[in-house]
Design a protein around this nucleic acid. Structure first.
Lengths: 220, 220
DNA sequence: ATGGGGTAGATTACATGTAACTTAAGTGGA
DNA sequence: TCCACTTAAGTTACATGTAATCTACCCCAT
């Protein structure tokens, strides 16, 4: 029997990392905030060792920048960085769709359609939060179906960075219906089993998001 | 004036990381070797703190695997992992070529052609080591020209992992002439300025490497 | 007012102490 | 002989001490 005081099982560093990441993704620690080791340690109620480790991990994941003898600062991703991120994401989501199209079966397709119908309902009900949730679930499911662990990891890291960058920006409800039709196109392409078509569908979805981003940037 | 005892300027952790990485890439620490903190610390002549940090970084970069309460082990990449890596690399090298085709100028093209001619000379002289060196330089130059820092970072990490995995395997001199014609095709595509063509050229080069890998795997 | 230089406080980077855990070898009993 | 248990060595994970470095503020001379 595992004797534990409360519901924790992983190490302190791991929990510190998770807490720190959450704090950053929710802008509790806004971009530009300095992540000093003693500060983070106190905030998370751990000693400096796991705090330092958590900060290092956050940095490796691109949620903070680091300068030797200076420390880490929560990443403040500018438009140029977002373009870079989306360029990479376009290529990788395309790959995910290509691989998924070759590996998934009828049930997998049905599962995606079910997700899409929930998503449609949420969009029609104007539930923006749920919309984002289901949008992410859709993409998460596809990369899972692609069955390439490295690809999955990279896409998740990009997703995190985007989430951080978009914290205030990303609520442009105008894109919701478009996303839905694009998702439908992706499912259709996946179902066809044609990897080229699937890749194109996945890529054009992300490419469109990047274009919207650029135009919003010009407008703002 | 910077008062330094010898030619080092970065921190101990950085140097420890570089030394450890070199040791791993040269199979001085072969795949499967356990990287215990005290052991690595002694080997590199530093205390446990920078050693631990170096091991963590190696792990994040995919050159070692990690299990909580167990420690890190030098990555032993099997055929399946290599396929994953090459799948991602194909997509990203394609992107690199696409971006480079849109951003590079005549001088850049000339520079690549110069590299290729050196490469051709090395191949004809049968200088295998130089061949690999120049092959890497070629790809490095293209990602540099692509001008996307995240893309560059990812490709470099993949390159490292491939180098580790291929330490013994990768000397298949039969591929040398093929690589040269493919590189020429890539340069031609880049020069044309057509991003679709450039991407296709870059991708098919990597896709071919993956196919060779699979067939060598079957044969071996 | 302004710029230079010193100084105090905070922080990083590294070193080291130590409890808990993992592993495997040894020991004794069935 | 074989298995359960103990135990010892090695290691991880975390805590903490400390010198060197950085930062920002203040003071003073111009």
């Amino acid at each position: 029997m595992t004797t534990e005081t409360s519901g924790r099982e992983q190490g302190l560093a791991e929990r510190a990392y998770l807490n720190l990441r959450t704090a950053i993704l929710e802008h509790e620690l806004a971009p530009g905030t300095r992540l000093s080791v003693p500060n983070v340690a106190e905030r998370l109620g751990v000693s400096r060792s796991p705090a330092r480790e958590a900060i290092a991990r956050i940095t490796y994941e691109g949620l903070a920048h680091f300068e030797p003898n200076k420390g880490a600062v929560v990443a403040d991703l500018n438009a140029e960085s977002l373009v870079e991120i989306y360029e990479v994401r376009e290529a990788l989501e395309g790959l995910a769709c290509r691989l998924a199209s070759q590996r998934m079966n009828r049930d997998d397709v049905a599962g995606l359609r079910e997700l899409l119908s929930q998503h449609t309902a949420a969009a029609e009900a104007g539930e923006v939060e749920l919309h984002y949730e289901l949008d992410m679930r859709f993409h998460a499911r596809i990369r899972e179906l692609a069955g390439n662990t490295r690809l999955t990891t990279q896409l998740e890291l990009l997703q995190q960075q985007i989430r951080l960058a978009m914290y205030t920006t990303h609520r442009s409800p105008g894109g919701m219906p478009l996303a839905l039709t694009e998702h439908r196109r992706i499912i259709d392409a996946l179902e066809s089993g044609d990897p080229v078509l699937a890749e194109a569908a996945g890529r054009s979805h992300i490419a469109r998001l990047l274009r919207d981003l650029s135009s919003a940037d010009r407008a703002g």
